[in-house]
Structures are given as C-alpha cells and as structure tokens.
Simulated assay, not measured.
Amino acid sequence: MMILTPELQPRWNAVLLDIFQQFITICKANDLTYYCAGGTAIGAIRHQGFIPWDDDIDVFMPRPDYDRFLKLCAQRDLGVYELCTPYNTPNYFMYFSKLCRRDTTIMERADTPCVYGMFIDIFPLDGTADDMDEALRLKRRFEKIQNRMEAISTRYRFTDYMALLTRPHEWGRFVRKTIGFFARGAYRRHLLRKMDAICYRHGFEEAINVVTYSGVYHAKEVYPKEWIVGVTPFTFEGLSVDLPLRYDDYLRHFFGDYMQLPPEEQRQSHHEKVYFNMEARVDLPTIQKLIRKR
C-alpha cells in the first residue's frame, strides 16, 4: 500500500482540482446538472475545499445529464483527460464513472488488475419506485449484482481460490469466479445489462424518490427527489461548485450533524491505493512487478 504523505498532498489536491475544473467546464458548456456529493459537499460547506484528511472528489448527476455526459465524452477528444466506465475499461467493476488524467496512474486494489489515472468519481442518480419498500428491494438487488461483478473482476491466487470451497458461505463466489475465468467478457456484459435494467426501470423525471444505486450507504441512498431539485453555489478551493438546493436535508440524511468534526482517530482517508504516480502513466505489468518487490 502506498501512503499519501502530507508532503505529497498539495500536488495530489492540485491534480484533482484540475480534473474537477475540466468536469465543471464540460457541464457548464453543455448545460448539464451535477452536484457535489458526500465528503466533497461537506468540504465545500465546512472547509470551502477539501476536508483536510480527505483525498478524493465525488459528484453525482441526474441520470439524463449523466447519460449525456458519457455520450459527449465518447464523441470528443478529451486531450489529457479520459472517462473510465464499466463499458470501456477492462476489469473496472464499479458501475459509476471516473474522469481521469491520462498522464497519471492509480491502481487501487492489489487483487484487481485495473489501472487508470488520478480521478474524480461521477455517480449516476436514478429515479426509483414511489413505494419505499420496492425502492429498497431494487437497491438490494442491484448490490447483489454489483458484488458478482466484483467477484469476477478480482484475481485470486489458486490456493485462495480453492480455499473458497472450504467455506460454504463462499460457494456462490467460487461459482461466479469460475464462470468469470472461462467467460469473463460475456458474463460481465450480462451483469451490466441487469444493472442497467434496474437503473432504467423508473424514469428520473417522473420519480418521487431517487437513488444512487452504486453508492455505499445502502438504504440511505434512497431519498426524496425534492431534496436535490435546484442548485446552490459554494466555493471549493477557489472553484465555484454546485450543491443541491436543499443540501442540508441531503447531508443530514447521510451524516447527521455534518458540521461537527469527527473524533481525531477517524480523521483519515479510507481509500485504498496500492500504487500511484502523479507524474506519468505506468502500465499494469510494471506496477505488478513493483508490488511484488515490496
């Protein structure tokens, strides 16, 4: 695991801000709606920038704007930037997208051979069922499919793979990894179609409730759409950024009293980085050699 030291943090933040600026430029030029999400929203309100111990930027976009954004990026030369999605990046098992810099490198997990550049995360926000029980059922169903995508994307040593057979609760994972070994591409496309079907089941415009299916807060990811209708600007490290108009309802739903600093022992990043390079793109075989030498 590589550590982002205080000495490296200013350079890291500068690269992320550059990507964020490019994202905002594309959105403003094409009348696309986005909102700062999670810790990025808290950072804008509480710190006017990065939470000091945070090391990423998260945004979300209503599904119609998200789809337009993906289409625009696919149709144009982004120069030093690139958009990584589950549709165009091998072994990328997340359902959301990352706007990255081509001249940098990150490999987040040792068990997942997926390399891209430093990034901001872009999450689609979908409409969901008016009935909350049905909305939560769809969220749980999506998470199960997402877990299968992760299972076929990770790589185990043979001994670890066979050890799954000794744990009955892991037999399903063993089966999925076996299918993934023999037909990873086809099974991956199958899972993506199933996730798409859930996400597009309820139109965003007509929905009362919305959901970030790929979000990690489980049931909390479902909430009233009225909380995010309209935007309000805040400053983030000198950039003018957009938050939902009812950002207080949105943030209290997820985090409670978000203006209260957490205990010192919790003030740390929770994002894995087995390798990163802020100056150049390094290929997968080289990274794997470097990891083995540690």
Rank of each mutant, 00 (worst) to 15 (best):
M2H: 10
I3V: 15
Q9L: 15
I24M: 13
I26Y: 06
A29H: 13
D31Q: 14
D31S: 14
T33Q: 07
Y35V: 01
G38K: 01
T40H: 03
A41P: 03
G43S: 05
I45L: 06
F50K: 03
I51S: 01
W53G: 00
W53S: 00
D55P: 00
D56H: 06
V59M: 02
R63C: 05
R63T: 02
D65Y: 06
Y66F: 15
F69S: 01
C73Q: 05
R76L: 05
R76H: 13
L78C: 10
V80K: 15
Y81Q: 09
Y81K: 11
L83H: 00
C84R: 03
T85R: 03
T85F: 06
P86Y: 03
T89M: 10
T89I: 07
P90H: 08
F93M: 07
K98T: 04
C100Q: 01
R102S: 06
T105L: 03
D111H: 13
G117A: 02
M118I: 15
I122D: 00
P124K: 01
P124G: 02
D126H: 04
R141P: 00
K144S: 09
K144Q: 12
I145F: 05
N147H: 14
E150T: 08
E150R: 11
S153L: 05
R155L: 05
R157M: 13
F158L: 15
D160T: 13
L165E: 10
T166C: 10
R167Y: 11
R167S: 08
P168Y: 04
H169T: 14
H169P: 06
R176D: 14
T178E: 08
F181P: 02
F182P: 00
A183D: 09
A186N: 12
Y187V: 10
R193S: 09
K194R: 14
D196T: 13
A197H: 12
A197F: 04
C199V: 08
H202K: 08
F204G: 04
F204V: 12
F204K: 05
E205V: 10
N209Y: 03
V210H: 05
V211Q: 04
V211N: 07
V211C: 12
T212W: 01
Y217F: 10
Y217M: 14
A219P: 02
K220E: 06
E221C: 08
P224L: 04
K225Q: 11
K225W: 05
K225H: 13
K225R: 15
W227Y: 14
V229E: 07
V231C: 13
V231E: 07
T232D: 03
G238C: 03
L243I: 08
L243C: 06
P244H: 07
R246I: 01
F255A: 01
G256R: 14
L261P: 00
P263I: 12
P263T: 09
E265P: 02
Q266G: 11
Q266I: 07
S269L: 07
H271T: 09
H271A: 07
E272W: 09
Y275A: 08
F276G: 12
F276T: 06
N277K: 12
A280P: 00
R281L: 11
P285H: 11
I287R: 04
I287P: 04
I291L: 15
R292F: 07
R294I: 08
